[in-house]
Amino acid sequence: MEKSSFRKAFGKTLVEVATKNPNVVVLVADVSSSVMTNYFAEKFPERFFNLGIQEAGMVDTAVGFALAGMIPFVNTFAGLFLRTMEQIRTCVAYAKTNVKLIGGYAGVSDFKDGPTHHSIIDIATMRAMPNLTVVAPADAVEVKKLLPLVAEYDGPVYMRISRADTPVVFNDNHKVKIGKGVLVQDGNDVTLIGSGVMVYRCLKAAKILSKEGISCRVINIHTIKPLDASLIKESAEKTGAIVSVEEHSIIGGLGAAIAEALGNMYPVPLERVGIADTFAETALDFESLLDHYGMAVEDIIKSAKRAFERKKGKK
């Protein structure tokens, strides 16, 4: 599979978005070269604001831009938005200001810097905010497709961007809509519902499982909130067993959102793949860190088999 960079796609698309829309401004807290807002800085220096190491102040400054009718993109590491949760809750979500929060280095993609820099509870916290839309693209193509929609979207959005270079899942014809899940491949026995960098691992697992006679439906959830509940219900009805797969704590993330939705609508066996309520650690590379903390392709396969068996046991 061809690999490509989320953050490069983000940085370049941000320039395109801002070329079309003069209201777009970019704020960053001394991580411009890391999250690749430097393309924007070169092209639109007058709309670029590097405020230094002051994440909380940056969020509120962006709120001011939004109140004045502009579209601020606020950039720092996903883990650092945790420092600004109250600003986000009160001044972004509650006040419903049109602020776009871009969380770079999401998940454990900053493998080398360790648990301080990992972001494994951002979906849980952001998802709990009323009014806030939460987006987690699966690959560089999806970043490119979603970012213009995030800019056009009237309201606050949190978008998760991985630091990793990961295999491309989609091609340029890929269609996305905020709030709509994507049926990546159909199947009958189990549905694998992934988001972010885990979608390609779902596809890998599905391939191996099909050789073992288990047919997997694969769904990509790029919008974690609002969740595409109807697609999830449809999948539950069709396959009767679900596995959620995310690069996040299993508490509060995609798997939890799916559990909530299924509990309300159509309970079926659900297995959650993610980090099991622990901090991870530093590693020498991204893929082995995913493997080590329960997000290996093998973990997806085992979970799919368990969900499948539970379904059969239920009947």
Partner: peptide
């Protein structure tokens, strides 16, 4: 330093 299972974390 920075290996999985090392006592020396990235930070």
């Amino acid at each position: 330093w920075g290996h999985l299972n090392s006592r020396l974390q990235g930070h």
